[in-house]
């Protein structure tokens, strides 16, 4: 199943597995297994990053977004998301409220190639951009519906995917109200060292977990020239994110669904869903 079986098993490991089989067969209870597992956990290599010290949050200031799409572009490059497929960890939406009470929403190629002026200015009442990404909800419906535990909320508040464990049922894609998840059909170099067969798994924004745990900013935040994306630690009272949350009036997307997103928005319009 997982490659573990094909590995050569050392004698000590063999004894350990043997013991566990006997215990498991005799009792079959989760309690005993959890004891075994906890003893294994103590051997775990802990890096310098302590996830108990952080709780990440994201602010999107839609009033500053200029719709250049550099965020979506940088995201694809950083995370090796195929450019030739309609898959986006983050994307920019354009809302144009027309004078005849009609709303035009678009996001051609996620905004990566920019936007075209296909509606004359005179017909437009107001217009603005809204960048979107995974909200890393505190009550993530995607995690709730995963049947095997292949996606989870970490201690530092990020929703991640286990690419080696995902069975590719796509229930999480159905469960996400924000369209943040997609199905990665093909293997990408990014996942290669970790995936047995590659591809065939769900994927989404991780707030660049591999960067933020090294003290870097997410690629989209770093790429944004307008300061429309702000990332920071909710546990740090002086963080960039907390400074905004303390002062501005903010909202989240689809608050009525009770997902408790941690991507907060400034300047949300009623048309934005």
């Amino acid at each position: 199943m997982n490659g573990d079986l094909t590995m050569s098993i050392s004698r000590r490991e063999f004894t350990r597995i043997g013991c566990r089989v006997i215990i498991g067969a005799a009792a079959g209870t989760a309690i005993i297994e959890s004891i075994v597992k906890n003893s294994l956990a103590s051997e775990d290599k802990k890096g310098e990053y302590d996830w108990n010290e952080h709780y990440w949050g994201f602010v999107v200031d839609t009033t500053k977004c200029i719709g250049c799409g550099r965020c979506a572009n940088a995201c694809k490059l950083e995370n090796h998301v195929p450019f030739d497929e309609h898959l986006y960890r983050t994307w920019v939406e354009r809302y144009r409220v027309l004078k005849k009470e009609e709303v035009k929403i678009d996001s051609p190629n996620g905004g990566i190639d920019g936007f075209t002026n296909d509606i004359p200015k005179e017909d437009i009442k107001k217009a603005f951009y809204v960048p979107k990404l995974c909200n890393h909800c505190d009550h993530p419906p995607c995690v709730q519906v995963c049947p095997v535990g292949a996606t989870y909320l970490t201690e530092d508040g990020v929703v991640l995917i286990d690419y080696d464990y995902c069975i590719g049922c796509r229930y999480c894609i159905q469960g996400c109200p924000y369209g943040a998840r997609y199905f990665l059909a093909e293997e990408t170099p990014h996942h290669k060292p970790h995936s047995v067969l590659g591809g065939g798994v769900a994927d989404k924004c991780t707030w660049c977990y591999h960067r933020i745990t090294k003290g870097l900013l997410p690629a989209c935040v770093q790429a944004c020239p307008a300061g429309a994306r702000i990332f920071g630690d909710l546990k740090d009272p002086d963080s960039a994110v907390n400074k905004i949350l303390d002062k501005e009036r903010i909202n989240v997307l689809k608050p009525d669904l009770g997902t408790r997103p941690k991507a907060y928005y400034i300047g949300l319009d009623r048309e934005v869903r």
């Binding site: 709730q144 095997v148 591809g199």
Partner: peptide, 28 residues
């Protein structure tokens, strides 16, 4: 049809090994 549809049919049995009980699908 379910197994044929999975991105990783060979991992399908995990639904029985580690069923995530908050998921409606895990009981399957």
């Amino acid at each position: 049809p379910l197994v044929a549809h999975l991105g990783h049919p060979e991992r399908g049995v995990q639904i029985m090994f580690t069923p995530h009980l908050t998921s409606a699908m895990s009981g399957f």
